[in-house]
């Protein structure tokens, strides 16, 4: 009943393609899983299939449940993701990067997770501290925020920030003092711009962690961001981590992007509309 010939053709095509394709990016998990017992004959086929995806395929079973090692691996990856959300960025990192630390209007982790509005603003004292930090007007202001993954900041900031700052300065742009915001959200950049008068604001922020990567960071950039601006007017560079866009490479790329945004006087879809988007999609 099965159309054997067509099925055979698909299998052959799939196999040929899988063998040709480069290994999937960086999920160590599926590679480490052992073959299900008693299926060595299909071992080679499964190995080829696993190369094509980081999904947890070929993991075998215990009855209709997961094998112990698969179950524990999933729990470990989830625990790492949870830790990335819940743990703070270490003082050591902030010291090494000489980043003064501010806190958004959120008083706690729970408040940060349930009140996005409070993560988008600084309290009175934070606003004063920010204005004290930025004594002269600047072209570009860069800050970091933990967002949904402190591990993303820990893993990428040290490699990215110096390259980014050097890259911006090399274009003759003035850069304000970089700082860190605990419990910060992307749109906090709107208030930061209003308080400092910076033209281009860039926030480096931890992405919501997946099981494959708890270390992924994003950069959001905007020209003269203002509260209530369309979200589409922010330019975003996502997936910054060892398995995606490497931190050093990202630093150089974002610096270039900041130069483009500053020159065009626009970001996001507005930048695209002005035909300056080539740079933004070349990665």
């Amino acid at each position: 009943m099965t159309n054997e010939a067509l099925a055979g053709q698909i299998a052959a095509a799939v196999l040929a393609e899988m063998r040709r394709e480069a290994p999937a990016p960086a999920d160590p998990v599926s590679q480490k899983e052992a073959q299900p017992p008693g299926q060595t004959a299909s071992g080679e086929l499964m190995a080829a299939m696993k190369k094509s995806t980081s999904a947890r395929i070929g993991v075998g079973r215990a009855g209709a449940r997961l094998q112990t090692r698969t179950m524990l691996r999933l729990r470990a990856d989830h625990a790492a993701a949870r830790d990335a959300v819940l743990l703070d960025v270490s003082q050591g990192l902030l010291d090494r990067l000489q980043l003064p630390a501010l806190q958004s209007c959120c008083a706690s982790q729970t408040e940060f997770l349930t009140r996005p509005d409070l993560g988008r603003c600084l309290p009175e004292e934070g606003r004063k501290a920010l204005q004290k930090l930025q004594t002269a007007p600047c072209d570009v202001l860069i800050f970091l925020a933990d967002g949904l993954s402190s591990r993303a900041i820990e893993a990428n900031a040290e490699n990215l920030l110096p390259v980014l700052l050097d890259g911006v300065k090399a274009q003759g742009l003035t850069v304000g003092t970089a700082f860190f915001v605990r419990y910060g959200r992307v749109a906090l950049m709107d208030q930061v711009a209003a308080l400092t008068g910076a033209r281009v604001v860039c926030v480096l922020i931890g992405e919501r962690p997946g099981l494959g990567s708890a270390e992924s960071m994003s950069a959001y950039l905007a020209y003269e961001p203002r509260t209530g601006m369309p979200e589409a007017n922010r330019t975003v560079v996502s997936n910054i981590y060892s398995g995606g866009l490497a931190a050093v490479e990202a630093g150089a790329y974002i610096a270039e992007l900041i130069g483009t945004i500053h020159k065009a006087g626009a970001s996001g879809v507005q930048l695209r509309e002005r035909g300056e988007y080539d740079l933004a999609i070349k990665r």
């Binding site: 899988m18 394709e21 999937a24 299939m49 696993k50 094509s52 995806t53 999904a55 395929i57 070929g58």
Partner: peptide, 17 residues
């Protein structure tokens, strides 16, 4: 059978799984 880059072969692998 979602895939991080829409690779048809990767999608097929998850589909068969």
């Amino acid at each position: 059978p979602n895939h991080s880059t829409d690779s048809v072969e990767g999608i097929t692998a998850s589909l068969f799984e």
